[in-house]
Design a protein around this nucleic acid. Structure first.
Lengths: 357, 357
DNA sequence: CTGTTAGCGCATTCAG
DNA sequence: CTGAATGCGCTAACAG
């Protein structure tokens, strides 16, 4: 069907081995390349209706599609932006991505998605690759290291906006959850529900600003309160033996605090979904399907299994985070010279059986 | 500023606003562009050690990075391939992606990841976009429609390999789970464990080949057996009211079959993880946390919450699927002219509490 | 309104 | 061993 010109047999063009170029179209339309270019760029006011029609026909006949690479080379901009994701396995990332995609769509940008899979080396490679492809900007959900890796980015380099985490020594826009408020929200909730012992469980946080902020807010909230006992457990999910050691510590505490038959007195506050999952798996294995009668679990992030497990969560405005990040980046690309800006979005508490009492 | 003349202090150039080009490097090294190009392409045998050193220095001084776009334009190949994902929200997709990335890495390819978010229109847009960026090939986890959308791809068009699903009228390589064997494996398992009523629950499958194959294999396996009763329930997850209607039907059946106190006689076989999650959520809401004492649940796909919920699964070799897909594509790109090939990988049954009796 | 000219950054003949 | 010239597909001045 396509756009067979009137008068020709309706066979689709025989799979052109070489894609048509602007020169081909010009020849086919009996005109110069400039007019084709004008047509492509919507400068119709500079084209007679007659010429325009001929061009249209030629393009259809040749199934012509302009080569973005060439356009980019000439124009100096290719509408490409990089999106560097630390861990796509984390539902958080995928959700942010949806916002990013929507915004890109709306702004005429094309996101190149790169997945570092939690490996610093990958992060470096991709960043370098993005650079060589001359992306106009990058959105970075970084692994946390500045040196070398992030050199080409940010101040002076290509425009960048950080997502979720700040990077030491890198001045750039940043958008993410209001970690302080979120952690405080969760802590207060647990305190209100009368838990006497609260463990904040988090992955190593020295290098990841968002985690650090969450820990700090937790500490602060617990200190302000005074009654309940709060502790922090660091779980390096990448090191299984370390994880088991940490979990054993937790088990000890839970066992010693068990108020047989009564509602649980201890609550676990997971700093994010991966941690929450690891905790749930362990508790499930150790105490059986009824582990929730022993311990309560609250988590920042709201993965799809949270509802199934009945755990309380603090949902992040992931979509908005992604969308906003692209907007920031776009402004920078268009030349906004503002200083580094922050956009901290609030989380939403979703109370489920685990802490409903 | 930029090109600091030789003999000046070795301060790193103050963030050149314009990236250095090959011409800059040539000038800086006091040679021609050709030699730089040779250096970049590793043709050291054609460079005197002395020249080579000068080039090296110049590149470092200018922080030069070759422009991939320009290279691609000239060479006619840009090492880019498109990866079109139907639904990144599905862990299956992310896992496949990891295999794709690893293979790309190994083969020197750069995957452009595009997320159709289950929208045919998005799929069309991205495919068209990939075309204009002149990707050398595409890996497609399609939404299932051929017309228009997939026109530029496959036979005659740019090399393509399908993942998980075949597309009607499109002749191309395909790699995915051996759906027939997997569904049969699951069905037999349920029969062995003595379930008397088995429901196969699946999303609308007319347009998605993998789903169709699973349904068919289930039917076949049930027919072969004869004793137990098998039924198929279609759940269109995109249509909530339809979903509820379907679930109500299921509820009726479960209730009527309830053998009070004994082990469950009915098992649900979910065709994939999204369906399994929807089922689990519903059962959990309706029968409480102990729903598994009423119904067993088996699912193709092995999402991270499966272990937590204790449901039996058939895990797909997702990583291998992605890796293999890239290998196929690579061969095609390099000019292999074989007819369409298939690569069907086996699934692995993981028995958990739900069906352990 | 329309076509000609000159590069964008790079790789590739083809002569030194 | 080395470099000058040519053109990839396209846009952007410049003239008609």
């Amino acid at each position: 069907m396509s756009t067979t010109p009137p008068g020709t047999p309706p066979n689709p063009p025989p799979a052109p081995t070489r894609r048509a170029t602007i020169t081909d179209v010009a020849r086919e339309a009996g005109t110069g390349k400039t007019s084709i270019s004008r047509y492509l760029n919507g400068e119709f006011s500079a084209l007679s209706p007659e010429l325009r029609a001929r061009i249209e026909a030629a393009i259809a006949r040749l199934d012509y599609q302009p080569n973005q690479m060439a356009r980019g080379l000439k124009r100096g901009r290719n509408r490409l932006i990089g999106m560097l994701v630390a861990d796509l396995t984390n539902p958080y990332s995928v959700e942010v991505l949806q916002g990013v995609e929507a915004a890109c769509h709306a702004l005429g940008l094309m996101p190149l998605i790169c997945h570092a899979a939690n490996e610093v080396e990958m992060e470096r490679r991709y960043l370098q690759l993005l650079t060589t492809y001359r992306v106009e900007g990058v959105i970075v959900n970084a692994l946390g290291v500045r040196e070398e890796t992030l050199r080409p980015v940010g101040d002076g380099g290509i425009p960048a906006v950080l997502v979720d985490r700040r990077v030491e020594g890198l001045i750039a826009d940043m958008v993410g959850l209001d970690n302080g408020a979120a952690a405080e929200l969760g802590t207060r909730h647990l305190l209100e529900r009368g838990f006497e012992h609260i463990w904040f469980v988090v992955q190593p946080f020295e290098r990841v600003s968002s985690r650090r902020l969450r820990v700090e807010a937790f500490d602060r909230a617990m200190r302000d309160e005074g009654r309940a006992r709060g502790r922090t457990l660091v779980l390096d999910l990448a090191d299984e033996t370390a994880v088991e050691r940490g979990l054993a510590e937790l088990d000890g505490a839970i066992d010693s605090l068990d108020g047989a038959g009564t509602a649980p007195r201890v609550a676990l506050f997971a700093a994010n979904a991966p941690v929450a999952l690891r905790l749930a798996l362990h508790l499930n294995a150790r105490y059986g399907a009824h582990w929730q009668s022993r311990v309560a679990l609250l988590s920042i992030d709201d993965p799809d299994w949270a509802e199934l497990a009945g755990i309380t969560t603090i949902r992040q405005p992931t979509y908005d985070i992604g969308y906003r990040a692209v907007e920031f980046l776009h402004e920078r690309i268009e030349g906004a010279l503002t200083g580094a800006r922050d956009c901290l979005l609030p989380g939403e508490l979703i109370v489920r059986a685990s802490t409903a009492r």
